[in-house]
Design a binder for these strands. Structure first.
Lengths: 120, 120
DNA sequence: TTTCTATTTCGATAATTATCGAAATGTGAG
DNA sequence: CTCACATTTCGATAATTATCGAAATAGAAA
């Protein structure tokens, strides 16, 4: 339990995930692993207008569930596994009055191809 | 993994929990244990108008996160721990491409006082 | 600098959601 | 049957959210 999370952040994250396209989008990035995906490829995969996708990407980013890095002209989005773990941790932590059942399964990103940054 | 859950149900549950009052409400019921709480007591605890609370109770019920039983004139609401576990299970299951990290911590309701129904 | 490409921001619109008071419903008591 | 109580449903209103095309921004290449 390195980083704390509060109710407000939990609500923001839950609300961000509680949408057909954003849930698909997040899981797409989770499966994409540490390499992530450029916005254009995501828009194509989800069959969304660029402007709509941008709206959802901003929403997930604001909720702290995904992150953005630039690679030449493309913006690469990656899932934030730590945030995912914190969210589930919060739900489980407050599950049984706060005592016994905390999740001991932590998710680590899958390095699909290039493993450039090992600073996680 | 006795009961399956699909994306649509997950979205409904996440959306139900992604609200200040409903998240507090759900956690209140979780802490209340198997005994549950009558609507009136919940409204008082959360300082909500009866009609507003009823709206949120219906929302959580529709999402399958809480259940309703009648006890004389009062309607008693209880948290559905199994639904909670299914939700977290879904999130974790699809966390690492679906393979390794599933949660092995399951939440059981706390029997605070009367343990009338053992058919869980 | 000019052009090309990727992505975001801006309007404008439609749909959904949250809120509360007042009225209605349903249950038990006298 | 009538009354009292707990909760829900009904309106009406305000706020938020999702959508997409068109225009603007940002970076890279020529």
């Amino acid at each position: 339990m390195t980083v704390k999370i509060n109710a407000e952040q939990v609500i923001e994250a839950l609300g961000a995930l509680a949408h057909e396209h954003r849930l698909s989008l997040f899981r797409l990035l989770v499966q994409a692993g540490a390499e992530g995906m450029p916005a254009g490829a995501i828009a194509e995969a989800l069959a969304l207008a660029n402007s709509s996708l941008s709206f959802h990407l901003a929403h997930l980013t604001r909720a702290g569930l995904i992150q953005q890095t630039r690679k030449s002209r493309s913006l690469i989005y990656t899932a934030d596994y730590a945030a995912m773990n914190r969210l589930v941790g919060y739900l489980m932590e407050n599950c049984c009055g706060g005592a016994t059942c905390t999740p001991n399964a932590a998710c680590e990103p899958i390095a699909t191809k290039t493993l450039e940054r090992n600073d996680a």
